[in-house]
């Protein structure tokens, strides 16, 4: 969009307009910007659909969506918020990992150091903690919404199953993270869980050995929970989320009345 140069500006307003157009032109119509964003702001329906369909981050969306699904009261955005919590947890979690060593001797001191010595460390830990609770709450509310709107019905049965798996993974993610600060709250909360795991009929001892690495909460449990928390479970959750989102598209978008 080449800026058409008019004659002399008649007043201040026109001067600013010309200046604005000039800045816009210099910023967005140069080869650096256009190497990143191939086209400008999509201001026609055709370009808006193309923008969604061709962008790697947006293409999980369809290009068009039914009128009723945009209403906020249909979904309350709960699934999206759960995913958003996951993203926030990933970002803050990576930052916390820089300072945290999963060792019985160091873990507690590291958390204290994060809170007192690291710039914005306390804030990062707080955000991680509260969004973790938020994710559990949102995942429950999302299940509530999907059930009471009857959105699990055919052909979306399997996506409900994937959702239940994601619910369990979310609970496990939160539970494994609970031990990491290695304070009294963490230790004894996990000890309660340890007791519940140990009450499994016939496989109680095995459950404790596999999940907690021993008959009491110690270094083995800490390193297991850490590995599960930062690697195995997020990876599994990400894979199931990809399936979950993709199946929404494959099953014909969100559930609608017949």
């Amino acid at each position: 969009m080449a800026v058409e140069q008019p004659g002399r500006p008649r007043n201040t307003r026109e001067r600013f307009q010309i200046l604005g157009d000039l800045i816009y032109d210099k910023m967005f119509h140069n080869f650096v910007w256009q190497s990143i964003f191939r086209s400008g702001y999509p201001n026609t329906p055709r370009n808006q659909m193309l923008a969604v369909a061709t962008n790697v981050f947006l293409h999980l969306h369809p290009t068009r969506i039914h009128r009723t699904h945009v209403k906020i009261t249909h979904t309350y955005c709960l699934g999206g918020l759960t995913f958003f919590m996951f993203l926030m947890l990933t970002v803050t979690g990576v930052l916390l990992m820089f300072y945290y060593v999963p060792s019985v001797d160091r873990a507690y001191n590291d958390i204290q150091a994060i809170q007192t010595d690291v710039r914005f460390g306390q804030l990062m830990r707080n955000v991680h903690r509260w969004t973790a609770h938020g994710m559990v709450i949102f995942v429950f509310l999302h299940m509530f919404r999907v059930f009471y709107t009857g959105a699990y019905k055919a052909p979306r049965e399997f996506n409900w199953v994937v959702g239940v798996i994601l619910l369990v993974l979310t609970l496990l993610l939160s539970f494994t993270g609970y031990l990491l600060p290695w304070d009294q709250l963490a230790l004894w909360a996990i000890t309660v869980g340890h007791g519940i795991g140990g009450s499994a009929p016939y496989l109680g001892d095995e459950t404790q050995l596999v999940l907690f690495g021993g008959f009491e909460i110690g270094q083995n449990a800490l390193i297991r929970f850490y590995t599960l928390h930062v690697l195995a479970l997020p990876l599994a959750a990400a894979i199931f989320m990809a399936v979950h989102f993709w199946r929404i598209r494959r099953d014909g978008g969100m559930a609608r009345p017949l």
């Binding site: 019985v104 707080n126 903690r129 969004t131 304070d183 709250l185 230790l187």
Partner: peptide, 17 residues
Amino acid sequence: FILLSVFIDAPLLNRAN
């Protein structure tokens, strides 16, 4: 969530014992 985190700190009790 950032406002929540500014005003309310995550709990940290004594070292696990």
